[in-house]
Amino acid sequence: METNMQLQAPAPGVGTDRRAVVDEVDLIPVRTYWQLVRQRFMQHRLAVIALVLLAVLVILAWTIPTLTGELYQKTSLDLIDQGPSLSAPLGYDHLGENTFVRLMRATQTSLTIGFAAVLIIVGIGVTLGSIAGYVGGLVDNLLMRLVDVVLSIPSFFFIVALVAFWGGGNVWVIIFAIGLAGWTTAARLVRAEFLRLREVDFVQAARALGASPRRIVLRHMLPMALAPILVAATLGIADSVVLEAALSFLGFGISPPEASLGNMLNNAQRYFYREPILMFYPGIMLILVVLCASFLGDGLRDALDPRQRIER
């Protein structure tokens, strides 16, 4: 770095310019934080595979049902229990429905619930968590006691109760129920992060510069809290998908003719002795979605974790 030469001698013509001092910084490529994250993420092979697989699933789950329209709920008596064919790679079930198309529709429903519920969880969690963490004091204490109250209710029964109250079967009811029961962890996470960040030097520096609270939260604290939120959200997708499956399996969730992984499992279970393979498809899909989300979450955590930051 040629730095101290400039500062050593405000007067020009320093005696040392006979050689250029190499600036070490110039030897490093310019990389933003997110470029570094991407680089580290790419090192995590399982996470990359999970990401690709999840992307494929999402594409399939949205294109196939769109292309085939109402086919997923079309029953036809003459096709009952038929084996695989080109138009039905997984054959037909006991109602004569195209299992592959139905599976794709179910995946779509489950993923929709997973993503949307996580959005609600993150929305409520970040809002309440950041208020608690930034304001602190009594507000913080009240909000955290609210979290305790929500946490003290077993979440599954809470969701079942909400669904029963609003009426089951509707995707949005399920999403809201899962969201309302699940925001507490996210809120705690964000609060802890905000409490920590409030004392961090660069936040103090912004305060000393006269930055407004709004700017401090949006420009300095939220971007930093984003990393743990992102990890939690990814892992939350897996949880929500499993919750939906459990609800539908027990008959509180999505009911036929609409398809979801849970109710497909429920149906398959009834015909288990006649056609056990029907259990296999939604089961595998569920495992696949959950594993993908988990690996993705792991990979993100490793990539975002500042402790693993590779200097330079």
Binding site: L7, V25, Y33
Partner: peptide
């Protein structure tokens, strides 16, 4: 320039600098 940093580094991120250089950035701020 005043704190002895290279002006071309204006678009770089803190993690690319050494401790002493970061301290200069803090002084400039």
């Amino acid at each position: 320039a005043r704190v002895g940093l290279n002006q071309s580094h204006i678009h770089r991120y803190p993690h690319e600098f050494s401790g002493g250089q970061r301290q200069r950035i803090g002084i400039a701020r």
